[in-house]
Amino acid sequence: MPTIPPVPTLEPAFDVVAELGPIEDHGMTRVGHRRVVPIVGGAITGVFDGEILPGGADWQIVRADGSIEIDGRYSARGRDGSLLYLHAVGVRSGDPEVLEALLAGADVDPADYYFRAVVTVESAAHPELERAVYVASYVREANRVRYRAYRVT
């Protein structure tokens, strides 16, 4: 009889609030409609507590249907002085009018759109964080994005 793999569960790991700068719209490039959203600060709390450092960004591709491919890369400095590198890859999608409202900075109920990502972590000081897979559920606000990352057990 073959062994059945364990069923994964989710346990809350950390929360991120990333403050955003103005969208840089690069227009239609060879890979699609490119946008870059600078990350200018923020906070991370949970299994790692610290500040999101300015200098990261979310490199986005806007699909023909208005959905957005997310590729966020940024760093955090912990209260202990250690560094954490986060890389989030995912998608934000929904009805066209909902996506337009988000782009305009409107307060939209997160139940009205889909915004999820896989988050990978690198840290020399906290290698235990590198030994897990994380998935995140997001809320987009006018000048920031918030998410909760869950460790997949």
Score class of each variant (00 low, 15 high):
residue 7 V to Q: 06
residue 97 E to H: 08
residue 85 Y to K: 09
residue 51 E to V: 10
residue 99 L to E: 01
residue 26 H to E: 13
residue 104 A to Y: 07
residue 57 A to S: 15
residue 95 D to F: 08
residue 9 T to A: 14
residue 57 A to Y: 13
residue 117 A to Q: 07
residue 5 P to R: 09
residue 45 T to H: 15
residue 70 I to M: 13
residue 16 V to T: 03
residue 129 L to Y: 06
residue 94 G to C: 03
residue 20 L to S: 06
residue 59 W to E: 05
residue 14 F to C: 01
residue 18 A to E: 02
residue 149 A to W: 00
residue 151 R to E: 03
residue 52 I to F: 07
residue 47 V to M: 14
residue 28 M to E: 14
residue 87 H to R: 11
residue 89 V to P: 03
residue 64 A to F: 06
residue 116 R to Q: 15
residue 137 S to M: 04
residue 98 V to M: 10
residue 143 N to Q: 12
residue 44 I to V: 14
residue 109 D to V: 11
residue 138 Y to L: 11
residue 42 G to D: 05
residue 55 G to H: 11
residue 129 L to V: 03
residue 135 V to S: 05
residue 27 G to Y: 00
residue 45 T to K: 12
residue 137 S to L: 05
residue 84 L to D: 04
residue 8 P to D: 10
residue 66 G to D: 00
residue 144 R to I: 01
residue 150 Y to R: 00
residue 96 P to V: 03
residue 91 V to S: 06
residue 104 A to P: 05
residue 51 E to A: 15
residue 139 V to R: 09
residue 134 Y to K: 03
residue 111 A to R: 13
residue 101 A to H: 07
residue 15 D to V: 13
residue 36 V to I: 14
residue 113 Y to P: 00
residue 76 A to V: 07
residue 84 L to F: 09
residue 88 A to Y: 13
residue 129 L to H: 02
residue 107 D to Q: 13
residue 12 P to T: 10
residue 141 E to M: 14
residue 97 E to S: 08
residue 136 A to G: 06
residue 82 S to D: 05
residue 99 L to D: 00
residue 83 L to R: 04
residue 49 D to P: 05
residue 68 I to S: 03
residue 142 A to Y: 11
residue 34 R to L: 09
residue 53 L to F: 07
residue 18 A to I: 00
residue 35 R to W: 13
residue 127 P to V: 06
residue 23 I to K: 06
residue 52 I to A: 07
residue 23 I to M: 07
residue 54 P to K: 08
residue 44 I to L: 12
residue 80 D to R: 10
residue 110 P to M: 04
residue 16 V to G: 03
residue 123 S to E: 10
residue 40 V to M: 08
residue 8 P to R: 08
residue 146 R to E: 12
residue 40 V to N: 11
residue 117 A to S: 15
residue 75 S to P: 01
residue 125 A to M: 11
residue 91 V to I: 14
residue 108 V to F: 01
residue 24 E to H: 09
residue 35 R to S: 04
residue 64 A to N: 14
residue 73 R to S: 14
residue 7 V to H: 09
residue 29 T to M: 15
residue 140 R to I: 01
residue 75 S to N: 15
residue 135 V to W: 03
residue 16 V to S: 02
residue 21 G to M: 03
residue 36 V to F: 11
residue 19 E to C: 02
residue 54 P to T: 12
residue 27 G to H: 02
residue 93 S to E: 12
residue 76 A to F: 02
residue 27 G to P: 03
residue 94 G to T: 05
residue 79 R to G: 15
residue 10 L to F: 13
residue 112 D to I: 08
residue 81 G to C: 15
residue 95 D to K: 11
residue 88 A to G: 08
residue 135 V to M: 10
residue 120 T to H: 07
residue 86 L to S: 02
residue 49 D to M: 12
residue 25 D to F: 12
residue 117 A to P: 05
residue 78 G to V: 03
residue 77 R to H: 04
residue 107 D to K: 07
residue 78 G to Q: 12
residue 118 V to N: 06
residue 45 T to S: 13
residue 22 P to G: 05
residue 51 E to P: 02
residue 50 G to P: 04
residue 19 E to Q: 07
residue 63 R to Y: 04
residue 86 L to Y: 02
residue 113 Y to Q: 01
residue 80 D to E: 14
residue 15 D to Q: 09
residue 64 A to E: 14
residue 14 F to P: 00
residue 135 V to D: 04
residue 145 V to F: 10
residue 80 D to G: 11
residue 70 I to Y: 13
residue 95 D to V: 08
residue 64 A to G: 06
residue 9 T to R: 14
residue 125 A to D: 10
